[in-house]
Amino acid sequence: MSLLLLAEQVLNGLQFGIMLFLMAAGLTLVFGVMGLINLAHGSLFMVGAFAAAAVAGATGSFVLALIAALAAAAAAGALVEVLVIRRLYAREHLDQVLATFALILIFSESTRWLFGSFPLFLNIPEALSGPVTLPGGIQYSLYRLTLIAIGLAVAFGLFLLISRTRLGIQIRAGESDREMIAALGVDISKLYTIVFALGAALAGLAGALVGAIQSVQVGMGEPVLILAFVVIVIGGIGSIKGALVGAILVGLTDTLGGLLLPLFFGLFMDNAAATSTGSALASMSIYILMAIVLVVKPSGLYGAKA
C-alpha cells in the first residue's frame, strides 16, 4: 500500500466525517436543548437533497440549489416542530420515537409522490470538478476538498453562534434549565422552533452536498441518521465540539478500517478470506469504537457528566 493511497483515504475519511458532523450537529442540538429523540432528522437530509436536485435541474445553478436545500429543510423542520413535535416535549421517549418514525413514512411517501421512485442526480459544478494536486503529489477531488472546507466553516460558525451570541446563550441555558429561562421571559416555544429549524437546515445542507456525490433517492437519509446517532453518542449529547470530533473519528475509522483490516488479515489468510473477514470487521469498527468510548467515558468524549 502506497503512502499516496493512504493519504487519499485519510482525506476521504475526513470528508465523510465532516458530512456526518453536519447531520449530527443538528441532531445533538435538538436532543440537548429539547430532550427530543428525532428519528425524522434523516428525512430532512433527504428533503435538502431533493430540493437541491430539483432547483439545480431547473436553473443549472449549484449555489441556488444549496440555498433551496437550506430553505426547504429549515421550512420543513419549522413546520414539523410547530405542528407535531411541539406536542411531544412532555411525552415519554417512546411516544417521540413512534411519532417521528411516522414522520419518516410521511416524508418518504410525500417525496415519492412529488418526484417519483427513480433517483435524481445532482451534478458537481464545473468550477469544482476535476482533481487538484496537493503537497506530496496527491491528486484529490476539488469538490471533496470544498466539502471539507464548508464543513469546517460551518463548525466554526456554530461555535461562534453558541458561544458569542444572545441566541447561543439562550440555547446553552435551555440545555441546563429550560424552566428557568422560560421564567426569565424567554419565549421557549420560539427558541425551540429556531433550534429545530437550524438543525434541519444543517441536515438539508449535508443532503445537498452529498447529493452531488451519490444519487438522490427516497430513504437516503436513514443510513446516515444511524451513523449520526453513533457520532453524538461518541462525542457526547449536546456538545458541538463532541459532534465534530466524534464525526471525524467515525469517518476515519470507517474509511481506514475498510482499507487496513483486509491488509492486516492478508498476513495470515489467503486473499479471499482476508478480504471477507476484514470487510466484515470494518463494517463493525465504528460500533466497536462507540463501545470502547462508552466503557471509558459513559457520557461521551465531551458530554456533560450525569
Rank of each mutant, 00 (worst) to 15 (best):
L70N: 04
A72S: 12
L64N: 05
F50S: 03
G57H: 13
A53T: 12
A72Q: 10
A54M: 14
L44K: 10
A58D: 06
A74Y: 11
A54Q: 14
A74R: 06
G60V: 12
A75I: 11
A74N: 02
L44I: 07
G60A: 04
A75Q: 08
G57W: 14
A71R: 04
A71S: 10
S61Q: 09
F45K: 11
A74H: 06
A71Q: 13
F45W: 14
A73N: 06
A54K: 15
M46L: 09
S43Q: 00
L66I: 02
A49Q: 02
G42Y: 06
G57L: 11
A73G: 07
A69H: 05
A68G: 06
A51R: 13
F45S: 09
V63I: 12
A71F: 07
A65P: 00
S61K: 09
A58M: 14
F62E: 11
V47I: 08
V63R: 15
A49E: 04
F62I: 09
A65R: 01
S43P: 00
A58W: 14
A75W: 13
V63A: 13
A58P: 05
S43T: 02
L70F: 07
A53Y: 11
L70Q: 04
A49Y: 01
L66W: 08
V47M: 02
A69F: 06
L64K: 05
V47T: 05
S61P: 05
A65Y: 02
F45D: 11
A71L: 08
A49D: 02
M46F: 04
A75F: 14
A56Q: 12
A69D: 00
T59G: 00
A72E: 08
G57N: 13
A51P: 05
T59K: 10
V63M: 11
A58C: 03
A54C: 13
V47K: 01
V55S: 05
A69C: 02
F50D: 07
V55C: 04
T59P: 03
A71C: 08
I67N: 04
F62Q: 15
A73M: 08
A68T: 14
G48L: 10
G48S: 09
A49W: 02
S61I: 10
A71D: 14
G60Q: 09
I67P: 03
A74P: 01
A75S: 07
F45A: 07
G48V: 12
A72V: 12
A54G: 15
V47R: 01
G57V: 09
G48K: 09
L70S: 04
A53S: 09
F62L: 07
A54W: 15
A69K: 01
F45M: 13
F62K: 14
L64G: 00
V47C: 05
A74Q: 03
A73C: 03
S43C: 00
A71H: 10
A68E: 15
F45T: 15
I67Q: 07
G60C: 06
A52M: 06
A68F: 15
A51T: 08
L70A: 06
T59M: 05
G60D: 04
G60L: 15
A68V: 12
A72I: 09
G42R: 06
L64D: 00
A58Q: 13
L70W: 10
S43D: 02
A72W: 12
A69Q: 01
A73Y: 07
I67L: 15
A54E: 15
